[in-house]
C-alpha cells in the first residue's frame, strides 16, 4: 500500500477559505478560478508516509474529473450516480490512507482547494443568500459530518463491492440509512448484507424507509448477540430474517404531504 498523505486545512483555514469562495461566487466569479493545487497554507500530517507532491495532486484532479465527465447533477437519479462515481473515483485515483482520511482537514482541503467545482456542481450556493452549506463543503470541522467528498468516499469504501454488482443503485438517502448507526456500520459484512436486501426491495418509492426499518431491526439484534463472530452466510441469514420481520409488520411507506 503506497498511500500519499493529503494536505490539510485547519478549521480556521477552512472557514476563511469557504468565506472567500462564497464571496467570489456571489460576485459572479467562476468556480474554476478557485481551484488550487497546493495552497501554501495547506500541510499534510508530519509523519506516517510520503506527502503528495503538486504533480500527484494534479494527477488526482485530472483522474477524478475524467471519471466524472458526462455525469450530470440535478435530478435525484443524477445526484445519486454522481455521488457513487465520485466515491469510486476518489477510492481508485486518490486512494486515501484510511488513517489520513480520518482527519477532517484532509476533506476540507480536497473540497475547498482541489475539487471546489465538483462539490459546487452538487451543492451550489443558496440562490438567495448565496451561502454554501458548511456541512457539505467543510463537514465536521465547521458543522455536521456531511462533507460531500468524505461521504462519497466512505460509502464507496463500505459498499463498493455491493454497488458494482447492483442493477439498481443505492441512493444517497439509502446510504445514509445503512451507515448512520456507526457502531453497527463498522461490521462491513453486516452492512453489505443489509445493502443487498435494500437493493432487492421492490418498492422503489419506500426503499429508504425500508432501509431505516431494517437497520433498526438489525440493531435490536446486537443487544443479546455479538454479530461480529458470525460468518458471512450466518449474517446473510440473520439480515434476511430481519427483512422478513420488517415486511411482516407492513410494507414501509414513504411519508406523503397533501
Amino acid at each position: 500500500m503506497t498511500h500519499k498523505l493529503i494536505p490539510r486545512f485547519s478549521a480556521g483555514q477552512a472557514a476563511i477559505r469557504l468565506e472567500e469562495i462564497q464571496n467570489h461566487l456571489a460576485a459572479d466569479g467562476s468556480i474554476s478560478e478557485l481551484i488550487q493545487i497546493l495552497p501554501a497554507d495547506a500541510v499534510p500530517n508530519s509523519t506516517g508516509g510520503e506527502a503528495a507532491s503538486p504533480l500527484d495532486l494534479q494527477s488526482w484532479r485530472r483522474g477524478v474529473i475524467e471519471a466524472l465527465s458526462g455525469i450530470q447533477t440535478g435530478s435525484k437519479l443524477d445526484n445519486d450516480l454522481h455521488s457513487i462515481e465520485l466515491g469510486k473515483a476518489l477510492s481508485s485515483v486518490v486512494d486515501p490512507s484510511p488513517s489520513d482520511a480520518a482527519s477532517d482537514g484532509v476533506w476540507s482541503f480536497m473540497t475547498l482547494a482541489l475539487f471546489p467545482d465538483v462539490v459546487n456542481a452538487r451543492w451550489p450556493a443558496h440562490p438567495v443568500t448565496h451561502e454554501l452549506s458548511k456541512d457539505r463543503w467543510i463537514g465536521r470541522q465547521a458543522g455536521r459530518d456531511r462533507n460531500y467528498l468524505k461521504l462519497a468516499w466512505r460509502r464507496w469504501q463500505a459498499l463498493g463491492p455491493v454497488m458494482e454488482s447492483a442493477e439498481t443503485k443505492l441512493g444517497e438517502d439509502e446510504f445514509g440509512a445503512l451507515l448512520e448507526r456507526s457502531a453497527v456500520a463498522r461490521n462491513r459484512r453486516l452492512v453489505q448484507a443489509a445493502a443487498e436486501q435494500v437493493i432487492a426491495f421492490k418498492d422503489d418509492g419506500a426503499r429508504t424507509e425500508f432501509a431505516r426499518a431494517l437497520m433498526k431491526q438489525i440493531t435490536y439484534q446486537t443487544g443479546p448477540l455479538d454479530l461480529n463472530i458470525l460468518t458471512a452466510d450466518e449474517l446473510g441469514e440473520l439480515v434476511r430474517r430481519c427483512a422478513s420481520e420488517v415486511l411482516s409488520l407492513g410494507a414501509p411507506r414513504r411519508a406523503v404531504v397533501d
Binding site: 478549521a11 483555514q13 472557514a15 476563511i16 468565506e19
Partner: peptide, 10 residues
C-alpha cells in the same frame, strides 16, 4: 482552535 473570526465569516 484559535483564529480571527472576521475573515472566517463569524
Amino acid at each position: 482552535e484559535a483564529f480571527a473570526f472576521g475573515p472566517a465569516g463569524l
